[in-house]
Design a protein around this nucleic acid. Sequence first.
DNA 1: GCCAACGTTGGC
DNA 2: GCCAACGTTGGC
Length: 147
Amino acid sequence: MAYLILGQVAMNYWLVKSEPSVWSWDQQVAKGAKGEAWTGVRNYTARQSLVAMKKGDKAFFYHSNEGKEIVGIAEIIKEAYPDPTDKTAKFVCVDIKADKPLKMPVTMAAIKAEKKLADMALVKYSRLSVQPVTAEEWKLVCKMGGM
DNA sequence: GCCAACGTTGGC
DNA sequence: GCCAACGTTGGC
């Protein structure tokens, strides 16, 4: 059932992945409140999530390949618009800013070890770079991250 | 560095 | 529209 908080639909939660050698959490933090365009997504499943993102939604920031851990929480500050780096004009991007780091990064190993997180897209669809996170998953990962 | 998973491309 | 070949992602 959908419910309302102060007249707004409850926010949605997401997870975005980046190889830290390409774009890291620290680089995201350095961009501050004005954030940065999350470009380069070239997968239609991931695109669906980008389109569904609303301003104010939160997203886990995951480091793939190196680290393999959720390191921080980002906030969507601009909803989907055409990705300027996409010559085919089919794909979109959003702008995100760093919100806050997790006190303790939550590793892929820790997520796999937690039975309640077995259905996370991060585990089931390991190649998907932008994905939804349920409110239950969000809460649990935050707790594991010392938040 | 390997390779499984899986999305995309292109010949038919 | 099918499907084999190919390319990419990302965990290990």
